[in-house]
Design a protein around this nucleic acid. Structure first.
Ligand SMILES: NC(=O)c1ccc[n+]([C@@H]2O[C@H](COP(=O)([O-])OP(=O)(O)OC[C@H]3O[C@@H](n4cnc5c(N)ncnc54)[C@H](O)[C@@H]3O)[C@@H](O)[C@H]2O)c1
Ligand SMILES: NC(=O)c1ccc[n+]([C@@H]2O[C@H](COP(=O)([O-])OP(=O)(O)OC[C@H]3O[C@@H](n4cnc5c(N)ncnc54)[C@H](O)[C@@H]3O)[C@@H](O)[C@H]2O)c1
Lengths: 227, 227
DNA sequence: GAATTGATGTGAAACAAATCACAAAAAACA
DNA sequence: TGTTTTTTGTGATTTGTTTCACATCAATTC
């Protein structure tokens, strides 16, 4: 039986995001050049790891000269298709959907939520600048804005049905906030975000730490915390 | 240079959460017994993996008889300290904080947000049933409810300062929604949730898939999606 | 009650990821 | 110009994780 994924984000990709955030910060501070160990220090990984990660994504620096921040950022922009805008739709304008629709960082990173959708007629009005449509207009909007990626923030019970509809209309990547495992064909990318699990795992490690050694057993922690 | 962690959640622990969610569902449907391959099918992993994961957490079943769902759930409850309630504080009652404070699944899983905090006086009133306090009452509440875990949902710029204060008052685990790497001593558990990165990674894989082979190169995807 | 069947549990093997170690290249300096 | 220094880039090694393979046990069948 073949293993299907739940967590599509490779660690190397996650780290690339970390490096980039760090580069943006450094650039704002007027820094122009970094070495692998600069990034390593800032992000808590090793300098070897930084270079290996860059190597994996075919990012090259200058022997002895480190990396030019602008170059690096430009390469990353291209890698993540951030030269052009990415249009996103969001389904479910409840508590979570509303928060996400107001989040300005998405736009800053060229991820535009062009429209949101909800079955509840009371929610179908302009909220926080982004229009809230009824589900009947889903196909129209997806086509008009060439949307490929969607955020699912509907209740657990509706998530599969909404997903099926999205895929039918041409969506091929989904960030899913509902705590269910969506059943999709393997050419659709699903990234599940389960905040209960995130919180619970912290509780697990905190309790474990307290139990083992009154808040002080670092060795054991390190073993579990490595990834 | 030692590698510090960013992603504290081991995959085996994440999978245990998956299994549990599945068990709860099956129990509601009246099922009493599962085999490793039942869970495997439902969660998209292999049955070997299920058994190995259980083995790691010292969970035992019955030779040939599979696992009794009630037993299994009980063992997991204990493993995750869900027999007693876990009190949580939430800092930052903006868009994200508000959504989280209204999320009913936390309570269902015995994770109680006992109080929320904000510097903005306009937000310091009862909202959604949970009180919003000024930061001056942080220590009092943490002590009163023996809080060990906090959710940080303040802007990037304030996250480190808030974290330092939390730790000073005895918090030892944090779920952090601000897109910054918090600097803490290694006995504090930090779990960073970065929703921009989660969305962006989906975009990355979707674009890659399209580029490589007009939406059809599964082999390559599988390689990237494995974890 | 022996033989068969169908599951678990776990060492061994295969695979993947991270770390190490060092060659190569470029800058600095003598 | 030659030597030293510094940092990249990447094979080799180590460490960690998943998959495989099978011994083990318990239920079922004959
Ligand atoms: N609120 C949180 O902090 C939080 C945290 C983690 C996960 N989640 C998950 O995110 C999802 C949404 O949570 P929420 O708190 O915003 O819930 P909510 O009930 O506030 O909002 C859900 C929205 O989805 C809409 N909806 C329902 N069925 C729909 C359908 N078939 N098509 C379109 N829209 C539909 C509803 O009208 C509602 O507006 C849930 O699955 C929840 O488990 C929420
Ligand atoms: N809104 C989202 O969907 C979303 C998504 C991902 C990440 N985030 C992150 O979560 C955090 C909060 O986002 P948001 O959209 O809710 O922002 P927001 O501005 O709506 O809310 C932030 C809240 O924190 C309070 N605050 C500021 N400084 C504080 C301090 N020192 N102590 C206590 N409270 C303080 C503010 O008064 C405000 O109420 C940010 O770091 C953001 O990047 C938000």
């Amino acid at each position: 039986m073949k293993q299907i994924t739940k967590n599509i984000i490779k660690n190397s990709l996650k780290r690339i995001f970390l490096y980039r955030a760090c580069l943006v910060r450094l650039k704002l501070m007027g820094v122009e050049k970094v070495f692998s160990y600069t990034l390593a220090n800032e992000t808590g990984v090793t300098s070897d790891q930084v270079r290996k990660d860059f190597s994996e994504f075919c990012i090259k620096g200058n022997k002895r000269g480190g990396y030019n921040i602008n170059d690096l950022l430009e390469k990353m922009e291209k890698l993540f298709h951030r030269n052009k805008d990415n249009n996103i739709v969001l389904i479910g304008m409840g508590n979570m959907g509303l928060a996400l629709s107001k989040y300005s960082k998405f736009v800053q990173r060229h991820m535009n939520i062009v429209a949101t959708f909800d079955i509840d007629p009371f929610k179908q009005k302009m909220r926080s600048g982004i229009p809230v449509y009824s589900m009947s207009r889903l196909k129209e909007i997806i086509d008009r804005f060439s949307v490929k990626v969607a955020i699912v923030a509907v209740p657990e019970i509706s998530a599969q049905e909404v997903t099926d509809e999205l895929i039918r209309h041409g969506i091929s990547g989904i960030v899913n906030f509902a705590p269910v495992l969506l059943k999709v064909s393997p050419d659709v990318i699903i990234n599940n975000v389960n905040l209960c699990d995130e919180l619970e795992s912290v509780i697990y490690y905190v309790h474990k730490q307290i139990k083992v050694n009154g808040l002080k057993n670092l060795e054991l922690l390190y073993r579990d915390m490595k990834y």
